[in-house]
Write a protein that binds this DNA or RNA. Sequence first.
DNA 1: GCCGTTTTCGGCCCGACTGTTTTCAGTCG
Length: 466
Amino acid sequence: MRNVELARCFRDLAAYLEMEDVPFKPRAYEKAALAIESYDRPLEEVYRQGGVKALRAIPGIGASMADKLEELIKTGKCALREQYYARMPVDIATLTAIEGVGPKAVKVLHEKLGVRTVEDLEAAARAGKVRSLPHFGERSEEKILKALAFVQTSGARQPLAVTLPLVEQIAGALARVPSVEQVAIAGSVRRRKETIGDADLLAVARKPDAVMRAFVGLPPVTRVLGQGDTKSSVKLASGLQVDLRVVPAESFGAALCYFTGSKAHNVALRQLAIKRGYKLNEYGLFRGERRIAGRTEEEIYARLGLAYIPPELREDQGEIDAARAGTLPRLIEADALRGDLQTQTDWTDGADSIEEMARAAKTLGLEYVAITDHTRSLAMTRGSDEAKLRKQMLEIDRLNARLGGIRVLKGAEVNINKDGTLDIDDETLAALDVVGVAVHSYFNLPRAEMTARIIRAMRNPHADIL
DNA sequence: GCCGTTTTCGGCCCGACTGTTTTCAGTCG
Ligand SMILES: Nc1nc2c(ncn2[C@H]2C[C@H](O)[C@@H](COP(=O)(O)OP(=O)(O)OP(=O)(O)O)O2)c(=O)[nH]1
Ligand SMILES: [Mg+2]
Ligand SMILES: [Mg+2]
C-alpha cells in the first residue's frame, strides 16, 4: 500500500472521530497523515526492514498507529475504519473535500438525507432538501451547489513553475493598489515546495477594506470564497485559489511567519512560545498583553532563542531543534553558483556574441563561463567543426587577455554519433577546457544499443559532462 | 492518540469568516 493510501485511511479516521466530537484524536491522525504523506520512503519498505518499531520511530506515529499501519500493510484494511464505515457508509474524503463541507456537515447530511456520495449531495441540494436541515439554510445550500461546480476545476496541486508567475502577477497588481505599503508572497510558494495547493499573499496597508475590494475585483478572479477586513480568499479562472491577509506594519514579520508556515512548523513554534511563557500568533510574539516582537521574522525567531530559519526548511522536520542548537545547514543559494558550463553563442544558434555572454556572466557574479557551441552534425545550428573550434579558441584567448574579472572557458557541446563516437576529433577535444557530450539524433534506439552508445561516448577520455 | 533536556500524566496553536445561532459552531488558514 502506498504512503498516500495509508495517509488517506488516517484522514478518514480523523474525519470520523471529528464527527463524534472525540477530542484531540482527530488532530493526532491528521498530523500522522501529513507525516506519512511527506515521508521520503515507502512505509511498506520501512516496515519490511524494521517492523512496527521502525514505524513507531516516525514522529507522530505511536504504538496504536503503528499497529494500524502494520494491519494496513499486511491486509490492505483497517478494522477501525471498516467499523466506522459500517456505521456510516459515506465517501468521507471526497465529501469533505468540498469547500465548506466538513465532518459535521457530512454527519447531518447522511443521517437526515442518506447522502453517501458527492452525487447524492448534488441531487439533494438541487431538490432543495438541504436548506431545511438543522444548522443549514438557504445560503449554505447555495454555497454547496456553487462549491460542487468547482470540484472539477480545483483540487490538483500544480508545479511551482506553473504557479509562481501567476502569483507574482497578482502580487504586482496588489502592490499598485492605493494605500498598499508592502506585499509578500507566503505559503508553500515562499517555501519553494515542488507543488503548490494554493497561493498565499500578505499585504501591509492603511486601508484594508479598500485593498480587499480591489483584490476580489482583480480581472482573473472568478469567485469570492470569503471576504473580511483582514482575510479574503478567491478563485482565479485557472482554478488557482489565492488567499490574502492584510495586517498592520508592526505585525508584518509575525504575519509573514504565520502565513509562510508550514502549518506543522507554526504549531511547533507556538508550542515553543508557550513553553517560554509567550503567546505567538500572526500579530506578534506576546508576553502577557505586551508585544515583544512582530515587525520582522528575524526578531520573532531571535526572541524565541532560535537562529533564523530559511522558509525552505520550515516543515517541522527537525529545523527548530537545529535552530536552537545553532546547527542549521547552510543552504545552497543562488550566489553559490560559481560558473556556467553550458552556453551557446552567435557562432552557432545562440543570440549573443562570446563577449556579450562573458560580460553577462560577469554581471551575474560568475567566476567563469564556458562557451559550448554545438558541433558539426547539428547542421541546423551551423555547428562547429575542428577548424571553427580552433578559430573560436583563439578568439577566447584574445578575449581573456582583454577582459578582467571573468574567465571564459573553451568548450563545446559535442554530438554523440549513432555508434557512440564523437563528431569532433580527439586532438581538438584535448585542446578544450571542458567538453560536454550529448545525444541530438537517433533518440529511439533500442535500450541496449542506446546504453552502449552512451557508455562509449563517456569512455572518451576528453568527455567531461554528459 | 502522541509526547517528554523542566513532565510517563496532563497537556495538546491560535485566529478569521460565515451562517445560523440567540451566543457560537463549523470550517478553514
Ligand atoms: N497556526 C496555523 N497556521 C496555519 C494553519 N493552517 C494553515 N496555516 C498557515 C501555514 C500555512 O503555510 C499557511 C497557508 O496555508 P495553506 O493551506 O495555503 O498551506 P500551504 O501554502 O503551506 O500549502 P499549500 O501548497 O497551499 O497546500 O497558513 C493552522 O491550522 N494553524
Ligand atoms: Mg497555500
Ligand atoms: Mg492558503
